[in-house]
Structure formats: C-alpha cells, structure tokens
Amino acid sequence: MASSPYFSLAALFVAALGFGLAPLGLVWLWAKIYSPPKPNSIKNAIYECGLESKGDAWVQFRSAYYLYGIIFLIFDVEAVFLLPFAVVFTSLGAVACAAMLVFVLLLIEGLAWAWAKGVLTWS
C-alpha cells in the first residue's frame, strides 16, 4: 500500500482534513465544557427590546383625516402669508392688496367647497 503512487496524496488529504476539522472539534469541545448554553424562552425570542407592538400594521386610516389635513393647510398657509402682509399693509399699493385679496379668496373658495361638501361635519 505504501508503494502506491497515491499513498502520499491520501496521507496529505487526511492531514489537510484533520487540520481543518481539529480546531472546529476543539472549539466545540471547549464550548461544551466551559460555556454550556442556558436558553430560555425570552432569550430565544426574535423580539429584542422596547415595547411589544400591538395590533396589525395594515390598518386603514379614514380618508377624513386626509381632508382635515388639507383643510388645515388653508388656515396654515393663509396665516403665514397674512402676517407679513399685515406688517407692510400701510405701504402697499392697490395692486398688491388686490393680489392678496385674490389669494385669500382662492383659499376661502376651497374652504367653502369643503364646507358645502359636508367635510367639516365629523360623523
């Protein structure tokens, strides 16, 4: 057998295999003796920390929320523009006042439309 031309190859193969597996075996043995696992149901849980989520994330929001958000923008944007307008009101010309009136009326039109549609009544 030793005279076979493949003998040295086989011996090297076994040595290479041992070289790879021996450390793994040692690690396994070391962990088994010195670091035995101590699992519990909380440790094995996927959930880690913080508060556990309640219910389903696939909830449907009422479309009325969306409309309320849009209508809020009417007052929000109006206030943002009306404030600087009021500050320089006395030094403004008629054209500027007319432009502002158009802007405010456009927004009020939107509000009136929503009101007429019954969006403001919360049922």
């Binding site: 696992p37 519990n40 909380i42 440790k43 849980a45 880690e48 920390c49 913080g50 508060l51």
Partner: peptide, 12 residues
C-alpha cells in the same frame, strides 16, 4: 419589564 427582559436575553 424591559430591563428584566434585556437581562433575560443576555449571554451567560
């Protein structure tokens, strides 16, 4: 409860 939960999840 969260502190105890974290303690439970720590390695021995």
């Amino acid at each position: 409860p969260q502190v105890v939960r974290l303690y439970n999840q720590m390695a021995e």
